[in-house]
Structure formats: C-alpha cells, structure tokens
Simulated scan of single mutants.
Amino acid sequence: MKTPSGNMYQLRLSAQWGRKTIGLGSDRFFALNLALEVDESIEECRTKGKDVEIDSLKELVKSRRETTPPRVLKIVEKDDLAILWDNYVTFHRSKGAWEETYVLTHIKTVGSLVGKCPYQKLENKQEIVRWLFDDPKRSPATSKNRLKLIVAAIDWASKQGQISRHWGIEYRDLLESISIKTCQSPNDEDESNIEIFSVKEVYQILEALKTDCFSRFKGKHSQYYKYVYFCWLTGCRPSEAIALKWENVDLSKNNIKFCEGRVNASGQIIEK
C-alpha cells in the first residue's frame, strides 16, 4: 500500500469471519519474513486442530516489530539447503569466527558438496546422508565430519529463526545416531610402535638428496637438500621453515625463533 511517506506492507487474511488485515511495516524484507512467520503460526494451529485467532496473530507481529530491527532477518527458502549454508558461512565470516585456512579447506569443501547435493529439501535427510556416505572417494569418518558441518549450519539456522527449531533437533539426533566403526588392519602399527629414522638413515637420505642418486633428472632432488637438512636439524615444521625471516635468526647466539607459518590452502598462500 502506497502512502505519502512511502510503501506500507500489509498481510490480508480471508476466512469465514471476513477479510482481516495486519500491518507489517515499511521494510519489504522484514515484512516478508513476518508474513512467513504468521503463515507458520497459522499452519501450526491448523495441524493441531486449533482455531486461528486474529488477535494472537496481531500480537505476534507487534512483538516482532518491537523487538527485531528491520533487515535483521533474511529471506530463506525453508527447504533450500544451499541457502541455509550460505547464510551460515556469511554470518560466521562476518564475525571473524574462522581462520582463512579453515575457510579455504573445510568450509569451501563442504560448500562445494552442498551445492552438488541433489537433495536440497530438509525433509530428505535420509537421502542427504546416503548421498554423502555413498561416495567411495570419502571414508565414512570423513563423510561424517562433512555432515557435522552441514548439521551445524542447519542447527544454527533453526536457532536464528530462519527455519523451524525442530529441524535443528532432528538433524542433531540423526548425526548422533550415525556410528562409524573403524577396523584396524593386522598390518597397521600402533603409533607407539612407529620406528623413526636413525641418525645413520637420516644422513643416508640427505646424501641421496644431495647427490641426486635416485633422481631421474639432475637437480630434481638436490634442490631440497638444504631445506630438508634444516628441518631435520631444527625440528621445525615445513610451514615454519618456509615462513622464517632473517629478523628471527640470531647467528651470534645460534638462536632461531619460529613464530610464523606459511601454508598452501587450496592454491592460496596463507600466512599465520
């Protein structure tokens, strides 16, 4: 409805008692979300066999308009998993909750899976789980870890009021019901029994790198000799060795300070 001060949005309800109107305010996005919430309330009453009271609906809208600033709520298709995931990622990235390496590895990977998933309706939870776990390229443990992030997004959306709360509860219960059995092969060794290289073996490896005795092309292995030697002598991580700066090296005291790292995350170099 157009007014001298701008557009005003209304919700019109038709029933046996006639047409009723509820004012939703001037913000289009907020009004649409209020309309969705009223629709859910009516559907809930209908499912439970209760009468729909217009005064109760007006009170619901009034309370939301008083407590929720405009444009806080986002329009969400309740059955669209991809939109829920995008909202979840956007919110947490805006809050700085994740490191960039985590986003470029775990979040990006799961986002790609969500986009490819042929089942986008939340009602198809069994099909979503089956699709995740049927991929032979992923181990069951990896598939469950991917599902954990998807469930976290659904649970977050339900707590934010973007979808009904029961979805978050149902998916959390589903996740807890999935048990991953890990079978250890007889040939697998316990971590406590792993045999590390002896000093003699380390020098043999270094000599092989230095002389390129196992390299098909000259220079292919020898270029890593000093790098591997340095990592072995200091015990530092590869990412720490790559990020090391001269300002953190004190030759007079034979002291090296490792305080930075540089890693390759999905083709992007991240320093931390």
Rank of each mutant, 00 (worst) to 15 (best):
M1G: 09
K2F: 05
K2S: 10
S5E: 14
G6A: 14
Y9W: 14
Y9D: 01
Q10W: 09
Q16I: 04
G18K: 05
R19S: 04
G23V: 08
G25D: 03
G25K: 03
A31K: 00
A35T: 05
D39G: 05
D39V: 04
E40I: 11
I42M: 09
C45M: 12
G49K: 01
K50R: 14
E53C: 15
I54C: 03
S56N: 07
E59M: 15
L60H: 14
K62I: 05
E66A: 02
V76T: 13
K78V: 11
D79R: 15
D80K: 06
L81R: 00
I83M: 10
D86E: 15
N87F: 06
Y88S: 06
Y88M: 01
T90K: 15
H92K: 07
R93Y: 03
W98K: 05
T101Q: 03
Y102F: 13
Y102E: 12
V103C: 07
T105K: 13
H106D: 06
V110D: 00
Q120G: 05
K121I: 01
K121C: 00
L122I: 12
V129P: 00
L132F: 12
D134A: 09
P140R: 08
N145C: 13
R146D: 14
V151P: 01
A152M: 13
A152D: 14
D155T: 15
D155K: 12
Q160G: 01
I163S: 00
W167P: 00
L174I: 08
L174T: 11
I180A: 09
K181L: 13
D190W: 09
I194E: 13
E195T: 14
F197L: 10
S198W: 08
E201P: 07
L206H: 03
A208V: 11
L209A: 00
K210Y: 14
T211F: 13
T211M: 02
C213P: 02
S215D: 04
R216N: 06
G219A: 11
Y224K: 07
Y224D: 10
V228M: 07
F230W: 05
T234P: 09
G235M: 10
G235Q: 08
E240F: 03
A243L: 03
K245T: 08
K245R: 11
E247S: 04
S252K: 10
K253I: 02
C259H: 08
E260Y: 07
V263H: 02
V263T: 15
A265C: 06
S266Q: 12
Q268F: 07
I270K: 06
